[in-house]
């Protein structure tokens, strides 16, 4: 048989007949970024680093097949049900506060609508809220201030419609700075609440 015939036969099999063994397909993520995976058997490895490419693994004794493009049609036909069952990925927001207070900045107040949309968009939504402070003042005062901030966001989220039992609010005080500073530094970026909707 000519090599070209073999190639066509292989292509036909790949497209029209489900192959035995495994198929591993790399996808892009919601933000368009593409990771990198290495598929290995006892006999060797193949690297996938382009979205919508895949490898077949026929048995443990041979390496995975070289990467090939996998069409949207084949992805839907094979993986449609798994893709439809995929949860909405967690989404994280940062909210900022006026110095020494649990009062949101004007810009951050405008973010609340997006947060509400994020939990309205998913089944079984949960929220994890972590309050932070900058390093102005004592650590124990800052721990309580950051907790007040987390609790303030908790109230806002409950008012926006999320069940209180599905919200966890906690404080990391001044121990988890985004902008690393020495003690007693006024840093707006550190006066924040991180809220993850998942």
């Amino acid at each position: 048989m000519e090599p070209i015939s073999l190639f066509l036969l292989w292509l036909a099999a790949a497209v029209f007949i489900p192959e035995p063994g495994n198929l591993v397909v790399l996808l892009d993520e919601a933000d368009g970024s593409v990771g990198r995976i290495v598929v290995s058997t006892a006999a060797g490895s193949q690297v996938l680093e382009t979205a919508n490419t895949g490898v077949n693994v026929l048995n443990q004794e041979s390496p995975p097949t070289p990467p090939k493009a996998i069409s949207q049609e084949q992805i839907r036909a094979t993986f449609g049900k798994a893709l439809d069952a995929a949860p909405v990925p967690p989404e994280r927001f940062l909210l900022y506060f006026l110095t020494g207070t649990s009062t949101l900045t004007e810009e951050s107040r405008a973010e609340i609508g997006k947060i509400a949309a994020s939990f309205a968009n998913r089944k079984q939504a949960r929220a994890t809220i972590i309050g932070h402070s900058d390093t102005v003042g004592d650590a124990d005062v800052n721990f309580r201030l950051a907790l007040l901030r987390a609790e303030e966001i908790r109230k806002i989220i409950i008012a926006a419609g999320l069940n209180a039992e599905r919200i966890d609010a906690r404080s990391h005080g001044e121990k988890d700075l985004i902008v690393k500073t020495v003690d007693n530094v006024d840093e707006p970026e550190n006066r924040r609440v991180e809220i993850t909707i998942w």
Binding site: G21, N22, L23, V24, V25, L26, L27, D28, E29, S33, V34, G35, R36, I37, V38, V39, S40, T41, L48, G54, V57, L58, N59, Q60, P64, I75, T78, F79, A82, L83
Partner: peptide, 15 residues
Amino acid sequence: LATIGIRGTRLLIQV
């Protein structure tokens, strides 16, 4: 048949 090493990604698997 195989192991899959990850570098931050989304992927599909059929067995």
